[in-house]
Design a protein around this nucleic acid. Structure first.
Lengths: 344, 344
DNA sequence: TTGTACGCGTTATCAC
DNA sequence: GTGATAACGCGTACAA
């Protein structure tokens, strides 16, 4: 590996000049710069990022710590963050915690050790410990879920979306919607549950506790939850699922029992994965502005990186959701279908 | 940020001793070690990874460069790689190239600058330039697609899988299967096309050129390809899609035209995304051992990292695929359905 | 067993 | 405008 010294010798200048040229310092003689660039090309010289970071006491990489790489929500957010980063000359490295607090802690550790320029993260829990990061002067932006510590955040009005979804279920004629949500430690899970409850409250009702299930946001857990719900003494007639992985689990259990959404049961899910329109029947969902979340988070991070202490007060951006009605939430009892078939 | 010197002063020893303790060098006095650890804890000391990397001339991070983070195939592979890395004390950072050669080049650059310990990548093209990596002594393992340069690889017998899929279509009674594959520069795309052709050859036939379409592996491109195929003079009666994103695009176009797979058209896709069993109707697929691919790649990388030059000959591991027949590939013309309904 | 001293490759400060 | 030099924080050969 060619080092800066090698380039300097070949160009007949000092290492300092090489450094200046490569960092586009304007006060260098044009001819010299030319010679230096030629030499660098000839040797295939690339600056050693590690040495540079040590010297500069900063890095050009962002860490994006997310809780589930398999969730389309996060992959879309990632694209948003990455686009902003690229635009500003940063690289982003993605760290997947798989909803595991231990993994999250490890990655926070890595981010600190490697002195990343900033962190965008979807905290595993409200109490996730990011003190090491802030202590190290590394700016953090929370997405998807809030953090106890005061940091910039990009959130979504989850409760509103969940209320919309549940109200829609009622409007369709379903009377006992269940709610399968995430782990209690995840704020999104609690917000979506709250919104679900709000829809009941608007009708001066209260959902029975037996209609609510917490899970770990995994499909298999949702499948089990739906199964137990269906087998309970007074089963629900419809379901609100707090994210798309859960929806997949529910779909699985419905199929197993020969239940068709939009006919035998109602179904609305949070998030609009690419496949939502193609399952049987097309799934009604609450969409979040995923890419936009990433973009906003990137912009927020950028401002903090520029002026670490400027505007000490943390800013929170809250984006809103939208209900997309497809067929899984419709209320068309079997006999209606049969009639339709006869007349057809 | 506490530095090693601070710990040394607090513990009343030299920085060298602190370093030794923290790196578990066995020849340190137990009492001293104790004191050092206490001091380190008290100060919340964390070794500066950048300085450490510069000194050691190596890092504890792997770069995983993949071509599409939205593709479940890669997220599953990523989990495999990560599990091996974690086991051995490495962190893996994920770089998404989005099938963009320029992005790939940038990430290769980053990997070199940041001196990662190793790289696992799904090359954008057979000719992707990784010379900088090998020149820098950074081991590379190719996955999914081979590379012109001789490196360890974990591949899948794509052609076999594609042939299986196409033969299955023929066996079901479809007679004019089309093939929608990826970009010509991607080996997987070519292999899958080759397997498709093999199935024709076994029947002493040859697919018309008009039955084949290349795309960029994106859903929207597949939708267009399928549309143009369907609108052609002699349209196909069934489809083999080279990956799950393409399948989504095909599904979209089918729905638009009111065509039901397994009845009006035949459909088999490569890859088994989580939603494959839940679309309408459940999709027949060729599965790859995704997680295993990641694991094998991780193991291969590990061996190279241990002994950079040992076994100069590159090793290639080829895993096999499996056909899962669900309903989208079945051949049940409309009238058959109608009859079944009558007798029911 | 422990401490001293140097170097990893780069950039920033200071003279010239 | 350019060059010598110090320093970033750590690990390790060498000396003690």
């Amino acid at each position: 590996m060619a080092k800066i010294k090698d380039v300097a010798e070949l160009a007949g200048v000092s290492a300092a000049t090489v450094s200046r040229v490569l960092n586009n310092v304007p006060t260098v003689d044009a001819d010299l710069a030319e010679r230096v660039r030629d030499a660098a090309n000839e040797l295939g010289y690339r600056a050693n990022g590690v040495a540079r970071s040590l010297r500069r006491q900063r890095t050009d990489v962002w860490a994006l710590i997310i809780s589930d790489i398999g969730n389309p929500f996060f992959t879309s957010v990632a694209r948003g963050v990455e686009d902003i980063a690229q635009r500003e000359g940063f690289s982003v490295v993605l760290c997947n915690t798989d909803e595991d607090p231990a993994k999250e802690a490890r990655y926070i550790d890595v981010a600190e050790r490697e002195q990343v320029a900033g962190v965008v993260m979807s905290p595993n829990a409200f109490g996730s410990d990011i003190s090491r990061l802030t202590a190290a002067g590394i700016p953090v932006v929370a997405i998807d879920r809030p953090l106890r510590e005061p940091v910039d955040s990009v959130l979504v009005s989850s409760a509103d979306g969940a209320r919309l979804a549940t109200e829609h279920l009622f409007e369709q004629g379903w009377t006992r919607p269940a709610c399968v949500t995430g782990p209690a430690r995840a704020d999104t899970a609690e917000q979506r549950l709250a919104g679900y409850r709000d829809a009941f409250a608007a009708l001066r009702r209260r959902p029975a506790k037996s209609l609510v299930r917490h899970t770990d946001y995994r499909a298999e857990s949702a499948r089990e939850a739906v199964a137990s719900l269906l087998d309970s003494a007074s089963p629900p007639d419809s379901f609100f699922l707090a994210n798309s992985s859960l929806a997949l689990g529910a779909l699985q259990e419905f199929r197993r029992r020969g239940l068709l959404p939009g006919r035998d049961v109602g179904l609305v899910s949070f998030d609009d994965p690419p496949w939502a329109g193609f399952v049987n029947p097309p799934m009604s969902v609450v969409v979040q502005p995923t890419y936009e979340i990433g973009v906003q988070a990137g912009e927020l991070l950028l401002k903090r990186i520029g002026h670490p202490l400027a505007g000490k007060d943390a800013r929170t951006i809250t984006l809103s959701t939208e209900l997309i009605v497809r067929d899984s939430s419709l209320h068309k009892p079997r006999r209606t279908r049969a009639k339709a078939a006869q007349t057809a």
